[in-house]
Simulated assay, not measured.
Amino acid sequence: MDEIIQRILKNYPEPKLELNFNNPFELLVALILSARCTDKRTNIITEKLFKIYPTAKEMANAEFDDLNNLISSCSMHNTKAKNLIALSKALCEKHNCEVPDSFENLVKLPGVGAKTANILLAFGFGKPAVGVDTHVARVAYRIGLSENKKPEIVEDAIKQTVNKENRVAFFSGLILHGRHICKAKKPLCDKCFLNDICPRRID
């Protein structure tokens, strides 16, 4: 496992998301929009969205139909539009229109779950949080790091195995690896740098 972790960190040395954002609020909005929506599509949407609603203050005052139309190419856009307005209102009412930097406060916001909160803490505030999406869960299971794919178990396994200073780079590496190499239906094992030591490689 130590060798697997080192190879992940070597091949994905810089913690990276494929979402475009400039601050914690933009990242939070992008993460909510990206649920069941590709990062490419999300980035197209947010490029226009943030020009009209650059902060929580503007988005809190958005008309539902206007916001919904802007994000209509994204899946579940009705629910997401409703959550984004409610989220922005909550930020302004309880946090001075700023995104809080604690897990407890984040998960109280409309539309924000544990995964979103942890990814936000990691990339928005530089904290050693571990965000577990479907890619992280799948790859962690396949490489033998976790006994199953339940997010809370995967998160705990990563925290127990990976040093704090490497956790963000590691879980973001798993996201990229799961998205581009260790795919759900057809993993590209012949192109994988873990091929010789992965316990679930497909020959």
Rank of each mutant, 00 (worst) to 15 (best):
K191R: 13
H95A: 05
E26H: 15
S146F: 09
P199V: 14
D156V: 05
Y12G: 02
L49V: 12
A129Y: 12
R36E: 11
V168Y: 02
S146Q: 07
C198N: 12
D2L: 10
A62F: 11
V29M: 10
L70N: 07
F193S: 02
C189I: 14
K149G: 03
R142N: 12
N20P: 02
R142L: 13
K159C: 05
G126Q: 08
I32S: 02
N69H: 12
T161L: 09
F170D: 03
M1G: 01
I71D: 07
D66Y: 06
F103H: 05
V136K: 00
S75N: 14
E58C: 05
K185F: 07
L109V: 08
L28G: 03
F21L: 06
I52A: 11
V162E: 00
L106K: 03
L31I: 13
H77N: 10
D101P: 04
F103K: 04
D203Q: 12
T134I: 11
K10P: 00
E152R: 02
V107T: 15
K10N: 08
T161H: 02
A35Q: 15
N23L: 12
M1I: 10
H135S: 02
E3W: 05
I202D: 11
V130A: 01
Y53M: 04
V136C: 00
L188A: 11
R201F: 09
I32R: 00
I45Y: 02
L9D: 08
G144L: 12
E58M: 07
E147I: 15
P24M: 08
V139F: 04
V99E: 01
H177Y: 10
R7N: 06
A56Y: 04
L19A: 04
S34R: 05
L70G: 08
V130P: 00
G113T: 13
I175C: 06
A184G: 07
D133E: 14
L31E: 07
D65P: 03
K51R: 15
I5K: 07
D39R: 06
I181W: 02
F170T: 05
C74A: 15
I119E: 00
N148R: 06
T134S: 11
E63R: 15
N118R: 05
K164D: 13
P54M: 09
N69K: 15
F25C: 03
K186F: 09
K82Q: 12
L33H: 04
V168Q: 01
